[in-house]
Design a protein around this nucleic acid. Structure first.
Lengths: 234, 234
DNA sequence: TGTACATTCTTGTATATACAACTTGTGTTT
DNA sequence: AAACACAAGTTGTATATACAAGAATGTACA
């Protein structure tokens, strides 16, 4: 067993206060000296907890003023291809999904081009709605290349998302992502339980492994319930 | 003029070695003790330089082994801070803009936090609509830190965008980007000449230079006229 | 009244030190 | 030859201390 460092305990304590709502955004958190006294550590150790949380976007500091709880951070990341179930779990919410379709279909022009197959070739087609605390947060329509992932349809996606399964069986080498804003169509609006034509973030994602294009997905998020974030340094 | 901290000089030195190619990926960086000796600082100061570069993804460390140069990170166009005028020019279209507002204002809570200023402090506020072949393609609302860019309001933005000007006077070190989908508000809809509540891609962008947070902008694109793309490799 | 100054509390930088934990090589013992 | 013990070098954690810098408040003085 490995005991965690002392600054980690302070970080956890602060996170807990924030997540429980006791310390809302803009709340002034105890000073370095105060925390040092409360936790019986040196100021530098308390400082490390505050500094790391600041780097992580949880807190904001300003010399002479103090340390404050930052606005809640956006959920998704533009840089990583993350699993929606993991993202939800990381927020401490419950994950569930509804499988609306799981079938074999014929590739239309667009899908055929994206997957590098002939038009009319057999492809796997799935539509799944992902729920965050019971609230629909992503409409996922996916076309998968059967020659690369022959057992796709047999999977149990109630506890393992397609994304998770695919990255396991076919390690990614390249991902093309396109982001746009669209009004929700009838089908999407019903599935996401939002008004028709309300603003949605639509992500097109084509994933390739060494052997070819594995999958082509359209991910639609209600604009009011999802954001993408990225942090770049130079 | 403020002299930069000593650990920053060490960071710069290491970055310079990497960028010049002298220290390729996997190269073993001098140890904390070695750097401390070379730069005549304490080990903890040298350590800070290495730790920050590790957090930034530039280096990798492992206990007992040493510190090594990390693989360069992939970055797509979603991630570059590009000038909208250049983007339009690259497509061979004509660029123009309409300046709707250019004034000094008082920072509200959100703006103050984002810029690291006190609430009610003076900030520069501009609203500009960018046109692609005469069609509105971006609604740009920007708050700028007057202490870092005092001459912002005097600029002529008809041929040089704020983004272009800011990157020239204050080289960026860090950019936070958030992307979401929203329905166009009345003001935005009028400026972009689209229907109210139609889907728009809204990008929040906070740019920092070495001396602090320079600017905080909201960029709204009509969903039907704009997309963002990124390509990642692994 | 109001301006200037001093005080106090905050975060930021820097140092010196100590010990823990991990990795590698070296040498000794079995 | 294999196993073990040890030393050296590395990063990781933690402390005590000092001073610098920014911000707010109160106080003295003009």
């Amino acid at each position: 067993m490995s005991s965690q460092p002392r600054y980690a305990a302070i970080k956890e304590h602060i996170r807990a206060q924030i997540e429980s709502g006791k310390w809302p955004a803009q709340f002034r958190v105890p000073s370095e000296n105060q925390l040092a006294q409360d936790f019986s550590v040196s100021r530098m150790t308390a400082r490390r907890a505050l500094s790391e949380l600041t780097d992580e976007g949880v807190l904001m500091r300003s010399q002479g003023l103090g340390t404050f709880v930052a606005e809640p951070v956006p959920a998704g990341s533009l840089l990583e291809v993350r699993n929606i179930a993991d993202e939800i779990a990381a927020r401490g919410h419950s994950y569930a999904n509804r499988i609306l379709k799981l079938e074999q279909a014929q590739a239309g022009t667009e899908v055929a081009v994206a997957l590098g197959l002939a038009e009319g070739a057999a492809v796997y087609h799935s539509i799944i709605v992902h729920l965050d605390n019971g609230l629909p947060i992503q409409f996922e329509e996916r076309y998968t290349n059967p020659t690369l992932v022959p057992e796709y349809l047999q999977q149990d996606f109630t506890h393992c998302t397609p994304n998770e399964y695919l990255t396991r069986v076919a390690p990614l080498t390249e991902v093309d992502t396109t982001v746009e804003a669209v009004g929700a169509s009838g089908e999407v609006a019903r599935a996401l339980e939002i008004a028709e034509n309300s603003a949605c973030l639509q992500i097109w994602r084509r994933t390739k492994s060494s052997s070819g294009t594995v999958s082509f997905a359209r991910l639609v998020h209600p604009g009011s319930r999802y954001r993408l974030g990225a942090q770049l340094r130079f």
